[in-house]
Amino acid sequence: MDEYLVQVLSNIGMISFLALSAYILLITGEISFGQQAFFAIGAYASGIATAMWGWGFWPGLVWGAAAAGAAAFLLAWPTLRMRGLFFAIGTLAFAEMVRLIFEIFRYQVEIDGELVGPNGSEGFRGIRYIFEQDISAFHYMLLIYAVLAGVLALLFVIERTRLGAIWRMLGEDELLAETEGVNRTYYKVLATVVAGAVAGIGGALYAHMNTYLEPKIFNVMLGVHSLAYGLIGGLGTAFGPLIGVGIDIGLLESARIFSGYRMIVFGGLVALLLIFRPRGLLDEAAVHALVAWWRNTFSSPAKRSGGSGRPPERPGA
């Protein structure tokens, strides 16, 4: 496979975690400008684990996700009372704080006569686990997609069961959800933690592919992009954000015809979509229509009430 293509696909895969993270909060009705903070925390935590503590890749990945989830848990409480715009600004302030803390965060140890570890705004060099284990870029790309498939599968299970239905209920009408018996605090905090952990996984994968972390790449632009992906691709299914990532990174950033004009096209596209399809290409109505079409075409009437002929992307229920 072409090296450039592998890199583009790897990027799409990693950013997808961030887009899914923003998507989880979007379906619960919150707009976060700060998911990049959890991406950064996952990246730093897993990088520290493998490069400085000598951990393996998988423990490092889990540790990165756990650290991001824990940070999200801490953020969830003070932001619980913030609504709408206030939540957006609050998460923005939090993420910028995290980035600025990484700008001054120094923690280095000497390994083989060389200082390794986060060095403030100089960044964090030498996360070389993948390189040392001789894993090729192509194999690492497959690994990214395997993890992504796992997270997607988990999200599809969530969406088909209790948790997903309640998240979407909260996202559409909080008051109704509460009068029907939903404990808002519990489910909002849970959504924030899951979203944080998903972003953390993406960050961990990113750290090991790049081998070098710089605080300034975890800026608000990254966060708002990941938010926009869900709004472009659609909030009806977890495939939506992936479509958004594909359109932006796959089409606009990588296709060289748009070079220099990518943001003009991307910005215009998002603005137009928000006018004509405010919940994205694959919004709930589109997913519903697709499901109905699928069922009419591929499953016999007898199966209908049994639900066995349903495709996996069915939301809620």
Binding site: I31, G84, A88, A228, F266, G267, L269, L274
Partner: peptide, 13 residues
């Protein structure tokens, strides 16, 4: 919120 995100998109432009 749609307006806010849209205004961000135009910012990029």
């Amino acid at each position: 919120l749609a307006s806010m995100v849209s205004s961000f998109a135009i910012w990029m432009q």
